[in-house]
Design a protein around this nucleic acid. Structure first.
Lengths: 123, 123
DNA sequence: ACATTATATATCATAACGCGATATATGTCA
DNA sequence: TGACATATATCGCGTTATGATATATAATGT
């Protein structure tokens, strides 16, 4: 079934607007989701390293004075493509879940009707 | 972060329209999601047993001739309540993910890197 | 006659992964 | 002094998804 807990996709999405470093990505996801999604650093860094290894993101160290150095990650071309396909997959998945939750199932086994439009809306 | 892999909620949803047995639940989920969600029996039965133990569903054995006996599960009152709250949780979660994917982020927390960005603050 | 598929429940091993704790290092503020 | 924010990183624990396997009968296919 794979109700996939796709933290990778969230990280890619957070990098969609431009480069960012790990600590910032965590806050971005928290901010955009208005506190609903809380990714811990323990999950983020392994994901970031895997994405880098897979060539979906590139990382560059950046020195700062008065603060620890940080590694700024940027989506590669492959990364942008991955983001798009992940987003499409999420859409299909979310619609599927919405259909299972839906209380109207007239045409469940009857015939093949057009694609039901149960969109996931965001504020 | 809890990108919750809520197969339980799918099972509750499948029972929302009325009693069903395990094998039927699998097919219901598959049908309603138009093949996107494919739950295996290996996941279903443990979930069903747990739900029964928690009092969210009740199970009654039903004999059939020519076919194996089957256990028909029915949502309890508590089960109906759980279904509703799970659905609400899913909605909040799905909207949060959609927001993270979304490309419009007016009032995002500034996570300074490179060029300073204009923070649009609206009352 | 034999094999596959459908109905139907159930368990198990493995791998993957979320989660929280922990470590390291520096600067600021009370 | 102690707490908090910035910043990266690893580790163990427990949960869980996945696929394989087992059992049993009937219908269908070759």
């Amino acid at each position: 079934m794979r109700y996939k807990t796709d933290l990778e996709a969230m990280v890619l999405a957070a990098l969609g607007d431009g480069p960012a470093h790990g600590y910032g990505i965590v806050r971005t996801i928290r901010a955009r989701s208005e506190g609903v999604l809380k990714m811990g650093e323990g999950q983020l860094y392994p994901i970031l390293h895997r994405l880098e290894e897979e060539g979906l993101v590139g990382g560059d160290w950046e020195m700062q004075d008065g603060k620890p150095p940080r590694k700024v990650y940027t989506l590669t071309e492959a990364g942008h493509g991955a983001l798009e396909s992940r987003q499409r997959e999420w859409g299909a998945f979310a619609n599927a879940v919405a259909r299972v939750f839906s209380k109207k199932h007239e045409a469940e086994a009857a015939y093949d009707h057009g694609a039901p439009s149960l969109e996931v809306r965001h504020a």
